[in-house]
Simulated scan of single mutants.
Amino acid sequence: MEGKSALFRTFAGLNSIPIVLDTTDPDEIVETIIRLRPSFGAVNLEDISAPRCFEIERRLIEALDCPVMHDDQHGTAIVVLAALKGAARHLDRDVAGLRVVISGAGAAGVACAKILRAAGVADIVVLDSKGIIAADRPDLNEFKTDLATWSNPRNLHGGAAEALDGADVFVGVSAGTVAESAVATMADDAVIFAMSNPDPEIHPDVAAEHAAIIATGRSDFPNQINNVLAFPGVFAGALDAGARRITEGMKLAAAEAILAVVGDDLAADYIVPSALDPRVAPAVAQAVADAARTEGVIA
């Protein structure tokens, strides 16, 4: 978290303080942050596992009159959407028509599914450690049950092999591995975002045998999907506008701004800017502030 504080300062000119809580109890976390609120203009939640992270974020958004965002969820989701829009544009595809498979139903996976849905993607299949999330699975918690009501429109069952058959996009946020035989059944001109770090779900060299565009969470391969492209600018824009909260529209605007920085340089190995590109945070901040004003969430 000290590193993220440095990134906030470097890219967005924001001062932040890493506060570590010696508890995993949602009630204690929420109460502590509410009591600390008068000292801070915004709250960036970090390293809270699912499903507790969903409840904690929801309760804090309801309780506080300032921007709150769990970066592990929404920072990842924003950059994934920007990257997918870049990939689709390069391949001359419509994002809404893509079949997307997300491996991982934790904080990042659920947030990615939600933002892709908000961006118009209709066919999203999510995998957890037990396989495809489907409405008739009896072992789902309340958050996965909700996910099952609007994902998996073809009612698929099974595991990665069944999910990836004919899929256009793979988004890996699971720390698991995916067999090459399953990846080989994806559609032509497939897109693979193998984001587990340091070991991608499928190694880029292997993925290149089956995909047109590949992204990872690593800096030593092209197309690094890194949250630093999102969170400094999102918070700077929200604070500049005096926003009371961070909305879905503000997140979508952030994704568009990230992609806009790429501009005419868009290529298979350049669908998102470098994580260190100094143009990104100001562009994201402006887009987020404009969206906040448009949506009327300013104080």
Rank of each mutant, 00 (worst) to 15 (best):
L84T: 07
P153T: 06
R137V: 09
A83Q: 05
P51C: 09
A122H: 10
G3V: 14
D220W: 15
I225N: 03
F231H: 08
V43M: 09
I225M: 07
P198H: 15
I61V: 15
V234Y: 10
F231Y: 15
T32C: 05
N197E: 12
A215L: 10
G233P: 12
P18Q: 05
S174V: 02
T185F: 00
A230F: 10
L156P: 02
D264A: 13
E2G: 10
V178H: 01
S219Y: 15
A281C: 12
A175S: 12
K114A: 13
V169K: 02
Y270D: 08
R137S: 04
D94L: 05
L91D: 02
A50S: 15
E62I: 07
D165V: 01
H203P: 04
M186C: 00
R218T: 14
A236L: 14
F40Y: 11
D47L: 05
V101S: 00
A215H: 06
L7Q: 12
L259S: 11
D92G: 08
D277L: 14
D71A: 07
R117C: 11
K85S: 08
T216L: 13
S49L: 04
N44G: 08
A208M: 10
Q224G: 12
E31I: 00
V178S: 00
E31A: 14
I48M: 07
S49V: 06
A12L: 09
R154F: 04
R245K: 15
N141V: 07
S5D: 09
G3R: 15
G166L: 02
M69H: 06
H210R: 01
R279N: 11
I48L: 10
A134G: 09
G97S: 13
D265I: 03
G86F: 07
D27K: 11
A291G: 14
D189G: 01
G13C: 06
Q286F: 06
D47I: 08
K251E: 14
P232A: 11
G233L: 11
A211S: 01
A257C: 14
A182K: 01
V261N: 11
I213C: 07
D139H: 08
V95Q: 04
Y270T: 08
M186F: 00
G242Q: 13
F11R: 05
D72M: 12
L140C: 04
R93F: 03
V43W: 02
Q286I: 09
R58K: 15
L252A: 15
A212I: 02
P282H: 10
I132T: 04
L266M: 10
P26R: 09
A268L: 07
G166N: 03
R137Q: 06
S103K: 03
H90N: 04
V43F: 04
T149S: 12
A255E: 05
A292W: 10
V280I: 09
G242H: 11
F170C: 00
A108L: 05
A184E: 05
A135D: 08
N155K: 11
S196D: 05
E295D: 15
I34C: 09
G106F: 01
D269V: 13
F11T: 05
G3S: 14
T177N: 00
G176N: 07
D269S: 13
L164V: 00
A255M: 09
V125Y: 01
D240N: 13
F54K: 10
E180R: 06
A119D: 12
